[in-house]
Amino acid sequence: MTTPTLPPTLEIAGLTKFFGGLRAVNNFGLALKPGDLAGLIGPNGAGKTTVFNMITGVYQVSGGDIRFQGESITGLEPHEITQLGVARTFQNIRLFANLTVLDNVRIAYHTHAGYGMLDAILRTATYSAKEKEITERAQDFLAIFKLENIQNEFAKNLPYGQQRRVEIARALASNPRLLLLDEPAAGMNPREIVTLMELIHFVRDRFNLTILLIEHQMRVVMGICEHITVMDFGEVIARGTPKEIQGNAQVIEAYLGKGVPGAA
């Protein structure tokens, strides 16, 4: 399964979440090797985003364990988890709306900015050098995502597709090993989706990442994911390659049973 030197990037076992009496996620399990590009699918309300929220520490875990690169991250604060190397995007894009695109990305460098508040107040040489480095790195990221021309725009003024790209750029700028994408293709037109799929592949290879994504657009999931985990009612109902999943009777039932055909 895994090479002895590299522990699995993500290893989840028995993950459970209660909201009051409601069991939103039950005994969820998942393992990702370094470099995997995996998908998490399921009907609405299946608990996919809740799993993301628990991996990133936004929700407290009710039970189970999450290991990242061999170490347990269960119960850590979100910022601690991010600092260890997990980054994510949100289903309903959560950019810093009143900040510029450049500042959105520069915020990701905060934890390794390399200078303190005193440097900033006194405007020391360290401040100038590090601030320049941060800015340049952020601009390089924007260039990769073809956003360099709008770096001084406010995030809230961007069209939807660009906001998604800024969010992914921002997540990558925090230098993650594992990237969680929550419905990256939502609201995109077919042409944008093709670009997005290429982008995800490119990002994975270029930054040597492990990627887990939630997606409703079956074209995306089946097109780029190597493994797929299917959830329904908070439980894993199937796992496998896209081919296996497409033929899985339980999965088809979960989707059709809800009256919603999977493919869009």
């Binding site: 520490g57 994510r88 949100f90 959560r94 900040l99 900015a113 601030e131």
Partner: peptide, 28 residues
């Protein structure tokens, strides 16, 4: 000087969206 620095951006990010700020590694 504080506002126009990394610290300042962290301060602003908390105002904009606490959850997103946390996920960006900022100790809210």
């Amino acid at each position: 000087n504080v506002l126009h620095s990394s610290t300042g951006r962290a301060i602003l990010s908390v105002r904009e969206d606490e959850t997103a700020a946390k996920v960006m590694g900022i100790n809210v």
